[in-house]
């Protein structure tokens, strides 16, 4: 059994390994940086640390996070020391999943950022996201090592 963090983006449920999530905070005012990739929303001051905000909806082809409402949260991911804030529409739950029950969909050509699907007891589908790819961790790692 492994713990997964579940959140809602658009109409869909996504899950990421609990260990990759550092904290969840309420939306903070974003400083926009011009002339950047569309999914890079800008930077925020997270208690004295400057953290990049990513809109993964754009990457997932679910439109853009335009409205920040009461349910919107910033999920702070920490993968190998790279801290990234992700805007999500709603944080839902923490779910225990048996890894054998996650259907592997990595071989499907269209699913670039989803690596598995999990069906809950009440027949809900949860998409397991590949955060490494989604947050471009390999690229960040490459730049860090080059420096």
């Amino acid at each position: 059994m492994k713990k997964y963090f579940v959140f809602i983006m658009g109409e869909k449920r996504f899950a990421v390994p609990m260990l990759e999530v550092e904290e969840v905070v309420l939306p903070i005012e974003i400083s926009v940086i011009p002339e950047q990739e569309k999914c890079l929303k800008g930077v925020v001051n997270l208690r004295g640390e400057i953290v990049t905000v990513v809109d993964i909806k754009i990457k997932l082809g679910l439109g853009e996070t335009s409205i920040i409402d009461r349910k919107t949260c910033f999920v702070i991911f920490n993968l190998e020391g790279h801290k990234v804030a992700v805007m999500v529409d709603e944080v839902e739950d923490v779910v225990q999943m048996e890894e054998t029950e996650i259907k592997d969909v990595r071989d499907l050509r269209k699913t670039k950022f989803v690596e598995g699907i999990y069906r809950t007891k009440n027949d809900q589908l949860i998409l397991i996201a590949n955060t490494r790819k989604l947050l471009e961790i390999d690229l960040l790692e490459k730049i860090r090592n080059a420096a």
């Binding site: 005012e29 400083s31 940086i33 011009p34 002339e35 950047q36 990739e37 890079l40 930077v43 925020v44 001051n45 004295g48 640390e49 400057i50 990049t52 990234v84 471009e136 690229l139 960040l140 730049i143 860090r144 420096a147």
Partner: peptide, 27 residues
């Protein structure tokens, strides 16, 4: 000076970021 996401440094004329007195981030 504080570190920022290296992608911004690659795609723009920035060397880092700073937190201003009003709490906002400026590059």
């Amino acid at each position: 000076l504080k570190n920022i996401d290296p992608r911004y440094q690659q795609n723009g004329p920035y060397s880092g970021g700073v937190i201003l007195g009003n709490g906002k981030v400026a590059l």
